[in-house]
Each structure stands twice: as C-alpha cells, then as structure tokens.
C-alpha cells in the first residue's frame, strides 16, 4: 500500500504528514510535486496543510488549478481515499470535491490551539475505529477555517451523515463557546457523498505521537490504512 503526500508551492505540513505515515504508521509514502499528473500506483492521497501559493487570492484558489488536481479529481471519482487537512481541506472545497467554503475565522485572527472534537460518524474509512460521540483532542492552526454552506447543502450533509467532526467542549457538547472559528453548526470536518474524500480543519498530523501530547490523530491515519487493507482483501 502506498500513499502520496502532495506538495504545492507553499505547503508546509507536507513533511509532518509524510513523517506520520512513513515513520509512525509505517506505510510506504512518497511526496508528489504538484506539477505531476498521475496518481498511478497510489492507494491514498493526503493534501497537507500550509499556505499554498501564499493563500494570497483565496485559500486553495490557485492550488486547485495545479496539474496534479486533475488526477486527484479522477482518483476521488473512482472512490480513492483523499484526506485534505487544513489548507488541504480548503483546496478540496475550492476544487469542488467537497461542498461549502472556508472563510475567515469570526475572531479575524489566526488561531493555533488544541480543540475538542466530537466524532459524528464512524461510517467513513477515517473514523471507523472511533466511537460515535467520542471526544478527541486535536490542534487547529488556521485563519480561514470558518465552514460555511447554503442551507440546502447543510441539510444534505446532515441527511447523508457527511458531517464527520464537530467542535465541542470537554464533555462533548457542540456549544457555541467551544466553536473556535464560527463554523456553521460547529462543523470541523466533512466527508464526500461517496464517503472517500475527507476534509478537516484540525491537524491529525500534529497529534500522532505520545511525545506531542496526544495520539488521537494517529488513530485516524491507522483507521484509514486498515480500511484500505480490508477493502483490498
């Protein structure tokens, strides 16, 4: 099994995602430069965080036109596993692979802090090994993580069980006071209709080793790897 970590100009969590997959989870992983055009031979794709193209026009707006994104779209259409973390999530919504948009945090400032997340569904390859309603701790680090969508889209996301994570307090209430960025209905992560494309603002790559304080992120990556192994059998 082999994973690709995409590298756009300005990606800065590419090394972090690579490190977790290759050295912590222990699966074969390669960096893939954004000018590449093929994902042949890869079983999963990670679009890492960072500031692709400086986030200068809109976050993710320029990266979605990179040559590799055509391959990512085809890969996703065929049911391939794609995770976008933070800037990766922003790229996925700009590319139309996930619905909605990510706008400026309501406090207008960049926020780097641990947040609590409630697992809303285990019906995804990424959360199959969590418990529904379980509270995780993960770091966020973004200025544009405020998830927004029109009412129909929001309705559809809920109807189809596509909301994967919500910001919550320590006891699991998705309270407004626990919402760091103003995201609609505290949404922190969503999955595509086909359940194979995950976008999330929190960083599982930053909490995948005990020495960093939490291993909740590691469970997400392991869940993905295990689901892929099973589906290959």
């Amino acid at each position: 099994m082999k994973f690709a970590v995409l590298v756009f100009p300005g990606s800065n969590c590419d090394h972090d995602c690579y490190h977790v997959l290759k050295h912590v989870v222990g699966v074969s992983t390669e960096f893939l430069w954004h000018k590449e055009t093929s994902l042949a031979g890869f079983d999963g794709v990670v679009i890492p965080g960072g500031f692709s193209y400086g986030d200068y026009l809109r976050c993710g707006a320029i990266a979605r036109f990179s040559p590799i994104m055509k391959a990512v779209e085809a890969f996703a259409r065929e049911g391939g596993s794609v995770i976008g973390v933070c800037n990766g999530f922003q790229i996925l919504v700009e590319a139309g692979l996930l619905p909605g948009a990510l706008i400026r945090n309501r406090g207008l400032k960049f926020i780097c802090a641990d947040v609590n997340l409630r697992v809303e569904t285990t019906r995804t390859p990424y959360t199959a090994e969590f418990r529904k309603g379980e509270v995780l701790t993960m770091p966020i680090a973004h200025a544009e993580g405020n998830y927004t969508a029109d009412p129909e889209t929001l309705d559809k996301l809920k109807r189809n069980d596509q909301v994967v994570f919500r910001y919550c307090d320590a006891s699991g209430n998705a309270a407004d006071s626990a919402n760091p960025n103003g995201a609609m209905e505290n949404i922190a992560g969503i999955v595509s209709e086909g359940r194979n494309v995950l976008g999330m603002m929190p960083h599982p790559d930053r909490c995948a080793e005990k020495v960093l304080g939490s291993e909740d992120g590691l469970r997400l990556f392991k869940s993905m790897v295990n689901s892929l192994s099973e589906s290959r059998v």
């Binding site: 400032k109 960049f110 780097c112 770091p139 790559d205 930053r206 080793e209 960093l212």
Partner: peptide, 11 residues
C-alpha cells in the same frame, strides 16, 4: 499572543 503563532507546525 502565542495563539496567533503557529507554534506546532513541523511537529
């Protein structure tokens, strides 16, 4: 102050 700095990137 430090909330505004990404103090975790590079893990």
């Amino acid at each position: 102050v430090v909330r505004q700095y990404d103090h975790m990137v590079r893990t």
